[in-house]
Amino acid sequence: MHAIKTTGLTKRYKNLTAVDNLNLDIQKGELFALLGVNGAGKTTTIKMLSCLTKASDGDAFVGGYSIKTQPNEVKRIIGVSPQETAVAPNLTVKENLELICGIHGFSKQKTKEKVIKLCEQFGLNNVLKQKASKLSGGYCRRVSIAMALISEPEILFLDEPTLGLDVIARQELWDLILCLKGKVTVILTTHYMQEAEALSDRIGIMKNGRLLAIGTADQLKQKMATDNFENAFVAIVREDTV
């Protein structure tokens, strides 16, 4: 069953086509990575799919709902962790989580249960009373993802979740993301090849707004006749340049 289906999804900004005729099927429960260099159109794609940016052409169906005609229904079933750290800086970790619970209209009891569960799941108990502005980059991303999961979304968008993190924090976050596999459909954008290969069921490679290739890491390696994913990525991107 499709979690996301895009048909000719396009975004134009004056003279620039940020996303060009994107046709994509993502299955329910899949962990799908959009991989590409800066400016490939990954974030714009996520922004359109999460109804933050209007598509210029085409449409996408998220959980069966059109991003063009049913944005409120789409918003009800998605969670988004933006590229930048999107937390309230002067609120504690606990207050940040409670804020999102309140916005989704949870009862006090449900809020309490949610906070306990997510803090356990994301290892946040030791920073629970710390202000978000005082957290390390790794903890900030954990809080950000935990906030995105509060509404129990069917589909979770993670925009460059490990950008700027050190190796240890990145590995820890990968473990957390892998724990979500199968439970929720995850669409993550990244420009780290290792990340896409380690985490994803399938990878879509984007360049200049276009989807150049799609498949599992093994399929992409096989397609480019190499046993190294980085080489496969470079070959796909270069092939397009030629």
Partner: peptide, 13 residues
């Protein structure tokens, strides 16, 4: 500027 509003724009607010 911090993308905090981006997050909130995807909620029922």
């Amino acid at each position: 500027e911090s993308a905090f509003l981006h997050r909130l724009y995807t909620t029922p607010l």
